[in-house]
């Protein structure tokens, strides 16, 4: 990596809403899935996106890939706005941006063989390749992700979750992308397989010089793989910082709560620590709280938190945080997790 890493991707003022039709006579409801999203992704880094269900993390991944069209804002890929790109150009651009899905079996067409599935993106994105060349690339990619060549004519239902996820990764790799969005790639897998896939992703990242966006609800997994972590709550960025900063010095009360809620596989630590248990559950994104959306569950909320929405401020070294009171809330002496 260079000393000044280039921004592969810049997300500016991204907004995405979904309209829920409430039937013929009822009011049309709007769900704001993402709002005021601003961040950059540097070449070669792994950016983790964490948040609980309904925080818009998967929507964000899909908006970046233009699988969903954002309502407002820009997605700049090396300076070029993907949201304004004509359909045909975007299609060509897809060779650079790929995705890995959560449910490995659901993401594979059950009627196609492994070879056909992996080769599928090549058919549209590299039409100049002939059958032999395609097959050669498929086999090479299968080798890279740890699949045996003799699996090429099998069907997805003959594979276990971990192997199916390897097939999904091979499909994402075959176009030699620069960026891969990993949408909860390991949450459907068994623990031992989970670790294998995480290691595989790390190896592939080094081998092919990939940039990864790693979306997950599991903070331990995200912390393990990511250089920087973006925390989302109800469709808004609450904090963005490096993994170490987030872990050692969380600035936003929500990040802190998340950190203390993460189960740690260490009985003594787990018994010692005080869980800063959040009250209640995530409010409905259809009718989010006024002002700071987190205030309803926040220990530090003051009346003024309900009035204005906290801006996303840049604090030291490009850290971003959106909280009115981040300066006042001190990080407790003993680190959040005990030691």
């Amino acid at each position: 990596m260079d000393q000044t890493p280039i921004n592969l991707l810049e997300i500016k003022d991204l907004k995405k809403t979904f309209s829920l039709t409430g039937g013929l006579f009822s009011r049309r409801l709007t769900l704001t899935a993402l709002e005021n999203i601003n961040f950059n992704i540097r070449q070669g880094e792994t950016l983790g996106i964490v948040g609980e269900s309904g925080c818009g993390k998967s929507t964000l991944g899909r908006c970046i890939l233009q699988l969903l069209a954002p309502d407002e804002g820009q997605v700049l890929w090396l300076g070029q706005d993907l949201t304004r790109l004509p359909a045909e150009e975007m299609r060509q651009r897809r060779a650079d941006l790929q995705i890995i899905f959560q449910d490995p079996l659901a993401s594979l067409n059950p009627r196609m063989t492994v070879g056909e599935i992996i080769a599928d993106p090549l058919r549209t994105l590299r039409p100049e390749l002939n059958k032999d060349e395609r097959r050669a690339r498929v086999l090479k990619t299968m080798e890279a992700v740890g699949l045996l060549p003799e699996m090429i004519n099998r069907y997805p239902h003959e594979f276990s979750g971990g192997q199916a996820q390897r097939i999904g990764i091979a499909r994402a790799l075959i176009t030699e992308p620069k960026l891969i969005v990993c949408d909860e790639p390991v949450s459907a897998l068994d623990v031992s397989i989970q670790a294998q896939i995480l290691n595989l992703l790390a190896e592939l990242k080094d081998e092919f010089g990939l940039t990864l966006i790693f979306i997950s609800h599991n903070l331990s997994v995200v912390r393990h793989v990511s250089d920087r972590i973006l925390v989302l709550y109800l469709g808004r960025i609450v904090e963005l910082a490096t993994g170490d900063e987030i872990y050692e010095q969380p600035r936003h009360p929500y990040t802190r709560a998340l950190l203390t809620a993460v189960p740690i596989p260490d009985p003594k630590l787990a018994r010692q620590r005080n869980i800063d248990a959040l009250k209640g559950e995530i409010p409905s994104p259809i009718n989010p709280p006024s002002g700071c959306t987190f205030r309803t569950r926040c220990r530090f909320a003051k009346p003024f938190c309900a009035e204005t929405r906290p801006p996303l401020e840049t604090i030291e070294d490009g850290r971003l945080v959106a909280c009115h009171r981040w300066r006042e809330i001190e990080v407790p002496e003993e680190a959040v997790l005990g030691e």
């Binding site: 276990s160 971990g162 192997q163 068994d190 623990v191 031992s192 397989i193 989970q194 670790a195 294998q196 995480l198 290691n199 790390a202 599991n218 903070l219 331990s220 997994v221 912390r223 393990h224 993994g243 872990y247 950190l259 993460v262 740690i264 596989p265 260490d266 630590l269 997790l337 005990g338 030691e339």
Partner: peptide, 19 residues
């Protein structure tokens, strides 16, 4: 195989193979 939020290892040490 279980990632631990407190110590970040470069690589996990998973069990090889499949169940």
């Amino acid at each position: 195989s279980t990632p631990h939020i407190a110590h970040r290892a470069a690589r996990l040490d998973p069990i090889q193979g499949l169940p």
